[in-house]
């Protein structure tokens, strides 16, 4: 198993953190090989910020960069338009259906109304990233729920643990609806 994942959106949505949490869940709590890289500087400003994770249960990951993501988790239209072309055909695209209108045909799309539900059910738009992460995990089983939750607990500010865990679980529920 070797999976390349790109998590992308606009600055401030927490896509970098989402990638770090996923990598941490895999590397620290599952004992898998994982490498995370991200966009920096002018590339990371404005419309399309990205956090890339490679997860493998084989040997050490050498070349560290994602070239052809198996999976794209995407939270803005600009990021979708910028990165959708890189995704492997038959790859999986999990998108925030509040903000993204999908267009590519030869990949599997799963829409998750993350931003809408974050506001409606949790009263906090900024946990949309955790809803996306919970949904993505549910769809792929790339790491266990417990590993992901542990990694989230390590990474979020004290006092926000409960809301973040709720967001992960909400994401998992929303994903159960399945593909479009």
């Amino acid at each position: 198993m070797r999976i390349e994942v790109r998590i992308a959106g606009f600055g401030g949505q927490g896509v970098i953190l989402a990638g770090v949490v996923l990598g941490r869940a895999a590397a620290v709590y599952e004992g898998l090989e994982a490498v995370q890289t991200q966009s920096y500087g002018p590339e990371a400003r404005g419309g399309a910020s990205r956090s890339d994770v490679i997860v493998s249960d084989e040997e050490k990951i050498m070349f560290p960069y994602v070239r052809e993501p198996d999976h794209l988790v995407v939270m803005s239209q600009e990021a979708y338009d910028k990165y959708i072309g890189d995704v492997k055909s038959d790859g999986l695209v999990v998108y925030d259906s509040t903000l993204v209108e999908p267009s590519r045909g030869d990949v599997e799309h799963v829409g998750v109304p993350a931003t809408e539900k974050a506001e409606e059910e949790l009263g906090l738009r900024i946990v949309a990233n955790m809803i996306m992460l919970g949904a993505y995990r549910e769809l792929t089983d790339i790491v266990s729920f417990d590993s992901l939750r542990n990694a989230v607990m390590d990474s979020v500010p004290p006092g926000t643990e409960e809301t973040n865990e709720k967001a992960l679980r909400l994401g998992a529920e929303l994903a159960e609806g399945g593909a479009d």
Binding site: V20, G23, A27, A34, P64
Partner: peptide, 9 residues
């Protein structure tokens, strides 16, 4: 920068 910025175990 490759090793400075990448995250790993």
């Amino acid at each position: 920068e490759v090793v400075g910025h990448m995250r790993e175990r």
